[in-house]
Design a protein around this nucleic acid. Structure first.
Length: 274
DNA sequence: AGGCAGGCTTTTA
DNA sequence: TAAAAGCCTGCC
C-alpha cells in the first residue's frame, strides 16, 4: 500500500539515529523493519509518499503506533526559539525527519543492555545473533527469512554458552538477569508505561547492569516517555560546548527526549565529517 | 555520601 | 591499538 505522511519522516535518519537496531537497509531509501514478531518493508517513493508491504488494517493496528504517526514533530520543532537557542534550532533543522519510535520495552531493554561499550554495528550484530539463536524463524512477504525477537522466557532459558556466542561478553549476566526479572514479573514493564519518571528510572536501574543511561534509553525509546533524556558521552560533550551555563531542561519539557535525539544525531553526523 | 579508578568481553575502524 | 549510546566493584 501507499501511505502519504505530511509530518517529519525520514527513514534514513531514523535508521541511523541509534534508537533501533533491527532495521536493515535494503536499498536506496528502503528498509526492512523488524518489530516484536513482525516484519515490514518500507520504502520512500519521493515526496511524502511511502510504500509499505502491509494491509491497511496492519498499518492502523501496528505501524501507525510504532512510527508514532499521530504525533506532530513539526510542532515539537516549532517550539524552539531560534533567537534564544540557535544551536538546538540548527540541530533540529538538520536532523528533521527523526521520530521517536514506539518500540517494545522488553526488546528495547535488551538492545540497550547490549549497547554498552559497543559501537552501533556491533550492537546490531549481537541483537541479530540473539534473535537467530532463540527467536522464531518466519518468512516475510517477500519470501525472505527473519527471526522474531525472543521473549523473556525464551532468553532466560538460554544457556550461558549460547548467549556468549552472540558476542555479549560480560553483558551475558545482565541480559540473563533482565530476562529473569521480566519473566517472573519482578519488573513489570507494562506498568512503567504510565509511571512517572523518577519511579521509572529507579525501577529500571534496580536491574543488574542497568545504569542511568540505559534506563533513560529504555524510558524514551521503549516506554515513549518523551521527556527522558539519555546522557551519554556525545550529549555530555555537546552540552559542555554549546551550553556552558547549563541546558534549559525546564523550557523544553515535556519533549526533552526529542531534542536530545536531534542533538545526538547532529553531533554524530558532524563528527563523521559533514 | 558521593566521587573516582580500574576492569570488563568483543567488535570495529 | 584505541575506542565503542556504560556499569560494577572497591576505595577514599
Amino acid at each position: 500500500m501507499i501511505l502519504t505522511i505530511n509530518d517529519d519522516f525520514d527513514l534514513e535518519k531514523i535508521a541511523d539515529s541509534g534508537q533501533c537496531f533491527r532495521w536493515e537497509r535494503t536499498g536506496e531509501g528502503a528498509y526492512r523493519v523488524l518489530h516484536q514478531d513482525r516484519c515490514l518493508r518500507i520504502a520512500a517513493l519521493g515526496g511524502r509518499r511511502f510504500s509499505l508491504d502491509c494491509s491497511e488494517t496492519e498499518l492502523e493496528t501496528v505501524w501507525r503506533d510504532y512510527f508514532d504517526l499521530d504525533e506532530d514533530y513539526g510542532q515539537i520543532r516549532a517550539r524552539i526559539d531560534p533567537a534564544a537557542d540557535p544551536f538546538l534550532c540548527a540541530a533540529a533543522e538538520r536532523e528533521r525527519g527523526i521520530r521517536i519510535l514506539r518500540q517494545d520495552p522488553w526488546e528495547t531493554l535488551v538492545c540497550f543492555l547490549i549497547s554498552q561499550n559497543k559501537n552501533i554495528p556491533a550492537i546490531r550484530r549481537s541483537v541479530a545473533l540473539l534473535a537467530e539463536a532463540c527467536g522464531t524463524p518466519r518468512t516475510d512477504r517477500a519470501g525472505a527469512e527473519y527471526h522474531t525477537f525472543p521473549g523473556p522466557e525464551t532468553v532466560a532459558a538460554l544457556d550461558g554458552d549460547a548467549l556468549r556466542r552472540c558476542g555479549l561478553g560480560y553483558r551475558c549476566a545482565y541480559v540473563h538477569a533482565a530476562a529473569e526479572a521480566v519473566r517472573t514479573g519482578q519488573l513489570d514493564l507494562e506498568r512503567l508505561r504510565d509511571a512517572d519518571e523518577p519511579s521509572t528510572l529507579s525501577a529500571l536501574t534496580g536491574l543488574y547492569g542497568v545504569g542511568i543511561k540505559v534506563a533513560s534509553c529504555v524510558s524514551l525509546f521503549g516506554l515513549h516517555h518523551m521527556d527522558a533524556f539519555p546522557m551519554d558521552v556525545w550529549i555530555r560533550r555537546v552540552l559542555a560546548v554549546a551550553y556552558p551555563n547549563g541546558y534549559p531542561f525546564d523550557a523544553y519539557a515535556p519533549y526533552n527526549g526529542v531534542y536530545q535525539q536531534y542533538m545526538f544525531a547532529y553531533a554524530r553526523t558532524r563528527a563523521k565529517g559533514e
